[in-house]
């Protein structure tokens, strides 16, 4: 089960994105357009996801182990610094320009959408810049150890 679990998790994640409307940039932009005809749906996506994860993470934390007995890798980074704020601001601008964040962008490739594929390629290039330039991460090691996701 552990071998197949990441695929099933990705599938479930993608189904949730498709059902919720997150894969449709027009809907995302309608949520981000507070001054226009505002579609509050995506607030409900966050609400549903956070509520389930809040309870599920408490169960996982209480268990303290994965189903196969391995330790849980909770994020350890706590600093609210220039990297997390500046990076999030840049991300938000890109999100607002196109209406795609990383999960829906990857899922939209599955709709065989060429524009989504171009966006994901540019996104991977942006990630590669951070990967080859660890100094910009304010001294944080370029490893997965501090990863939040």
């Amino acid at each position: 089960m552990k071998r197949l679990a990441p695929f099933l998790v990705g599938l479930l994640f993608g189904l949730g994105l498709c059902l919720s409307g997150m894969t449709n940039p027009a809907k995302v932009l309608a949520f981000l357009d507070l001054a226009g005809a505002w579609d509050p749906s995506l607030a409900f996506v966050m609400l549903g996801a956070i509520a389930v994860a809040f309870v599920g993470f408490r169960v996982a934390r209480a268990r303290g182990r994965t189903v196969s007995g391995a330790p849980l890798d909770w994020p350890t980074a706590k600093a609210i610094d220039g990297s997390v704020i500046g990076g999030s601001l840049l991300f938000g601008v890109g999100w607002g320009l196109v209406g795609l964040c990383p999960g829906p962008a990857i899922a939209d490739v599955g709709f065989l959408d060429g524009r989504a594929a171009l966006f994901v390629a540019a996104m991977a290039a942006g990630m590669a810049i951070v990967a080859v330039w660890p100094a910009i991460r304010a001294g944080a090691p370029a490893t997965a150890a501090l990863e939040d996701g």
């Binding site: 890109g94 795609l100 810049i129 951070v130």
Partner: peptide, 11 residues
């Protein structure tokens, strides 16, 4: 947009 999202989310 893709460059900003990729760079920003990794940062």
């Amino acid at each position: 947009g893709g460059l900003l999202v990729g760079f920003g989310t990794r940062l």
